[in-house]
Amino acid sequence: MRHLRALCAIADTGSLHKAARQLGVSQPSLTTQLRRIENFLGAALFSRERTGCRPTPLGRSVLSRARPLVAEMGALVVEAKAAAAGEGGPLLRIGSTASRALAGWLRRLRDRLTGTDISLHMDVSANALLRMVAAGQLDVAFVHEVEGCPLLVPDGLCARVLVDREPQFVSLARDHPAAAAPVVDLADLAHDRWMVDPTVDGEWDGLRRVLGAAGIDPPVLHGDYHTAASLIAVGEVVAPCQPTSMPREDMAVRPLRGDPLAVRLLLFSRPGPSGELYESVYADLTAAYREAALRAAAYRQWLLRHKSPLLAQAEPAPLPAA
């Protein structure tokens, strides 16, 4: 199963680097593992290209058999653990990409669903979370979809739109000349080095599209956003960020003029009988997101300028516990 999971991860991410990060192993280790599998089968399963790894015809054939096996094994493990831990007690398994609404969402759910075992699984890859929902390993997944980079949604999943178009802001050093204005032009960042996390689905492709449309080709550094924060503070890089991001003494958060970079926020689940439960899950997420949005001054001002309906939404009335 370990080999099959590795093959699926490489195919899904299109990159040995991204697949290794998703699997929690080093890239050299994954490369060696793939080489051993291909040597055992006697043929290449992936073609290595400048843009990444693509399955060969044999690779596609192997993957068509591997995917259902991996999904079934994942579901078996999850169901066995649930049975051992709760003996059929109420469970709610949540998956999410990074969001400042998470803390408020979990707080509301725990208040509402007393006695329910609520778990959280974080992943930088929205597509990986959707596969877990489809395989029965998660009940819901809160994810973002970068504009222009559609998610790979497995058949049968249901989606609720939380925010149809959330603008992405930019974080930059507090003493950056562009930080003096309430709104930043991309042209003012043309000579800055940008930092982006390529393991976040669609993140690099979306930013590259926006920069190209603006006629800008700045140097780009690939890395995680935790590292980016320390580099932004000393003026080494600028980076896209969620509008709910909070500024710091050494770092400013500003909207981009014209909002060229955006994402869609979605809640996915499988169809089933728990309609009332998922309605309450969605209502609590909506309230938590609004709370996070209004707490961030730059985003609150953006919502006011755009007369967002989010400002008029009230905290939802409590629904019956599941």
Rank of each mutant, 00 (worst) to 15 (best):
R5W: 00
A6Q: 14
L7I: 03
A9Q: 02
T13S: 15
H17A: 14
A19L: 07
A20I: 11
V25H: 09
V25F: 09
S26A: 14
P28E: 10
L30H: 04
L30Y: 07
Q33R: 15
I37S: 06
E38T: 02
N39D: 14
G42V: 07
A43T: 14
R48E: 11
E49F: 00
T51R: 15
T51Q: 14
C53R: 12
P55C: 07
G59D: 05
S64P: 01
S64Q: 15
P68E: 01
V70Q: 09
E72L: 11
G74W: 07
A75T: 12
V77H: 11
E79K: 14
A80K: 08
K81R: 15
G89C: 14
L92C: 06
I94D: 05
G95N: 10
A98Q: 09
S99M: 12
R100H: 11
D111G: 08
D111I: 00
D117P: 00
L120P: 02
H121W: 03
H121Y: 06
H121C: 03
L130G: 08
M132F: 00
V133L: 02
A141Y: 04
F142M: 06
H144E: 14
E145F: 01
G148A: 08
G148T: 11
C149N: 13
L151Y: 03
D155S: 13
D155Y: 06
C158N: 04
R160H: 14
L162D: 13
L162Q: 10
V163S: 12
V163G: 04
V163P: 00
P167V: 01
F169E: 01
R174K: 10
A178D: 07
A180M: 05
P182C: 02
V184C: 10
D185H: 14
D185F: 02
A190Y: 03
H191G: 05
D192V: 00
W194P: 04
D197A: 05
D197C: 03
D197L: 05
D197N: 13
P198V: 09
P198W: 13
V200K: 10
D201G: 01
R208Y: 04
R208L: 11
R208C: 08
L211M: 09
L211E: 07
A213W: 03
A213L: 12
A214K: 11
A214P: 05
V220H: 05
V220C: 10
H222C: 06
H222T: 08
G223C: 06
G223F: 06
G223Y: 06
A229C: 00
L231E: 02
G235T: 14
E236N: 11
P240V: 00
M246A: 13
R248Y: 07
E249A: 11
D250A: 12
M251H: 03
A252G: 13
A252K: 10
G258N: 08
A262S: 15
V263F: 03
L266H: 01
L267V: 13
F268Q: 01
F268W: 06
S269A: 09
P271Q: 09
S274V: 00
G275V: 12
G275D: 08
L277Y: 00
L277M: 10
L277I: 07
E279N: 10
V281T: 09
A287M: 01
R290D: 08
R295S: 13
R295L: 12
R300L: 10
R300A: 15
Q301H: 09
K307R: 15
L310K: 06
P316W: 06
